[in-house]
């Protein structure tokens, strides 16, 4: 088992209101079999033993699916390895003596909670704006009533794999949430069940992303490069098309209400 030493420069910030700065820490005994977060666990145990405040970072499942973890490692969201969340990034990819810079996701829409932990509730609000199919419990038809072409189901699943970690926003030069938003629009829009609300969904989710202060998409592809689920930017194109379709085809709602 290879063990080695690293130097960490970690962004420390007590809360959204406080200022932040980089602090330097040594990680003297890193095992190649550790995950990146386990390496930080060990650093934190040392900090606690010394009476210092441990580094706060979000994490939960540690198997790359919950989307809770994530920060920048040397300027890359989730670190340098493709298709990998930072919790599944293993230390065997690093060398003795390396210096690593750890920074929180930086976006006006993601206020810092503490150190490397940020508030990503803006992403939830984008979903709340329209990222669903309105089907109250109990109102479903039989699962096989509507056939879904396999290729559509698979493509939909490609988009649905999004874990909502925010790496796309963090890595985008414009702090855009286009990949996140388009993944949900693509997931639902590719299924027959998602058609009735397809236009409305695109308009509302896109509008919410703008309200939250995310930037625009310049098609540079940094998001798909760091996406742990490798969701491609073709879904952004699909979202743009849905948006354009929606603008062109938008129909006024009838105002002749009343069912009584």
């Amino acid at each position: 088992m290879r063990t080695f030493a690293l130097t960490l420069h970690v962004w420390r910030q007590k809360s959204a209101k406080d200022g932040g700065r980089f602090a330097e820490y040594k990680a003297p005994n890193v095992s190649e079999h550790m995950s990146f977060l386990e390496m930080l666990d060990v650093v934190n145990q040392d900090l606690i033993a010394k009476g210092d405040d441990p580094i706060a970072f979000d994490h939960d499942c540690r198997e790359g699916i919950c989307g809770m973890c994530g920060f920048m490692v040397n300027g890359s969201a989730h670190g340098p390895h493709r298709g990998t969340t930072v919790c599944q990034l293993h230390m065997r990819h690093f060398q003795d003596g390396e210096e690593l810079w750890l920074e929180p996701w930086r976006s006006a829409a993601f206020p810092i909670v503490k150190d490397l932990a940020v508030d990503r509730s803006a992403l939830d609000r984008i979903i709340a704006a329209g990222g669903f199919i309105s089907v109250p419990t109990g109102s479903a038809v039989d699962g096989n009533a509507t056939p879904v072409p396999k290729v559509d189901a698979e493509l939909s699943m490609d988009a649905a794999a999004c874990i909502g970690c925010g790496a796309c926003v963090a890595m985008c030069p414009n702090a855009s949430a286009a990949l996140f938003t388009s993944a949900k629009i693509g997931h639902l829009g590719l299924l027959p069940q998602g058609q009735p609300e397809r236009h409305d969904r695109a308009l509302k989710m896109v509008a919410q992303a703008n309200v939250e202060g995310f930037g625009h998409c310049t098609s540079v592809g940094e998001c798909e490069a760091v996406c742990p689920k490798q969701i491609p930017i073709t879904f952004i194109a699909r979202m743009n098309r849905d948006f354009l379709d929606a603008v062109i085809h938008e129909r006024p709602q009838s105002d002749r209400g009343g069912s009584g």
């Binding site: 006006a108 995310f214 940094e222």
Partner: peptide, 21 residues
């Protein structure tokens, strides 16, 4: 859009990699 972009990330990264851009 450029103005919006700057507002979307008011604090720049100290270190930023370019993966595929």
């Amino acid at each position: 859009l450029y103005t919006l972009k700057n507002a979307a990330r008011p604090i720049a990264y100290a270190k930023k990699a370019h993966r595929v851009a």
